[in-house]
Design a protein around this nucleic acid. Structure first.
Lengths: 225, 225
DNA sequence: CAATTGCCTATTGTATACAGTATGCAATTA
DNA sequence: TAATTGCATACTGTATACAATAGGCAATTG
């Protein structure tokens, strides 16, 4: 018989997930100082696993560490977003090229994921489905380092995408983009698929850039944790 | 007057650097278990900063963490190297393209660095100069996330390059590669420079792959820390 | 009154103590 | 003798105690 090993929870991982969720959905606003003692109390863990969690979030880019000053929620900036989204259209098509044309089973899964994406009720769900779609697209890529790298970029861009999705529903356009990519793949045209993928990432970027531009920058005053 | 702020040492950073050095130069062999208590004693720090250092090395890819089992020196594998070096020729030319043609001052610095590279006495020095050359080449790239990413790949590939350089001196070929890139840049031909850069990375890869293949894999038995 | 300096407090950096788990060995049983 | 089980031990995961530093406030001085 086949059993999943029961998850013996690890406090650092739990804290990391909890803090990331609070940052992503805005309960911890930009530039918020993260007081170790208060935050540890609120999460019901000690400072040791909390600090491990914070350090991982630093390497993920969600939190900034100023030595001997503390940890702060990294604000969303047009500059960072611009840079993150200039990298994805480099990485993703390269991964797809290495993956080659997907087999029939994967194509079916991609169509199913795209429908789930279109039907998503919440922004959180939509982004999760979109990420899942893109990861499935390149799942056959033999370069796992590249796959991990792309996955880490998914996490890093999530805050931006969520902030946008809260205001605008851009799912329809992205779903059509995905359909275009699938169509090219079904005609065994890898080059066209890569181009469409690049276009998908760049147009997604343009939408968020517009939104960040119109938004009054800053204005989120830091309060105590 | 201009003063450097004196470095108020941070034990985590110091430990991180010390452990990385020991891994890179082989004092800590592959698959070596890193006992927290022993290693902390040897470095003269407590377990807390040591663990922070180890966790950072994990995200750098030099160390592997098995939950509740401990930390281990990640062995060099052909598979990982293959993947790392398939990514650099994607990232570096993209960064160069974003950076555009370098100005005269940067070209001069590049030639100077290339001479220092050719004159390097030790493998460590040669690799440091090579990395410096590549980072200088893309220094004008406005995408700092991409630059940081490439820098992190430099660190991750360093162990492989050092292992190779210890046996073979491949500096001459790489120096000529660099010269080719510079020549293209001086003729204002960005496309040709990007192509030459890609070739430089791929041929470097081929050399190390050959070496890893001929080497008897494994054979480095793990001992206590 | 402005500027500087010294002290106080809050907070991070580090060390250590405690708890729980994985691994190896010995004892036991068939 | 082989297999299994219980136990001892060493190690990681977590909590907490201690040390050191940064920032603010007040006192002092010109």
């Amino acid at each position: 018989m086949q059993l999943e090993p029961i998850s013996r929870a690890n406090l650092s991982d739990a804290a990391e997930a909890a803090i990331r969720a609070m940052i992503v959905d805005g309960r911890l606003p930009a530039d918020q100082r993260l007081n170790e003692v208060h935050l540890a109390e609120r999460l019901g863990v000690s400072r040791t696993p909390l600090r491990e969690a914070l350090n991982r979030l630093v390497s993920e880019g969600a939190v900034e560490a100023r030595p001997r000053r503390g940890y702060f929620v990294k604000p969303l900036t047009l500059a960072e977003f611009d840079q993150l989204y200039d990298i994805r259209p480099i990485l993703d098509p390269a991964a797809l090229r290495l993956a080659g044309l997907p087999d029939a089973r994967r194509l079916d899964r991609l169509e199913k994921l795209n429908r789930a994406f279109a039907d998503a009720r919440t922004p959180e769900d939509a982004i999760a489905q979109d990420d899942a779609w893109h990861m499935e697209l390149i799942a056959a890529c033999p370069n796992t380092v590249l796959i991990d790298l792309i996955a880490s970029f998914c996490l890093r861009t999530r805050r931006y995408e969520l902030a946008l999705m809260r205001e605008k529903a851009l799912v329809a356009r992205a779903r059509d983009d995905h359909d275009d990519i699938l169509k090219a793949l079904r005609s065994d045209d890898l080059d066209a698929a890569c181009l469409a993928l690049e276009h998908n990432m760049r147009s997604g970027k343009a939408a968020i850039v517009d939104w960040l531009r119109t938004r009054a920058t800053g204005a989120t005053k830091a309060k105590r944790s």
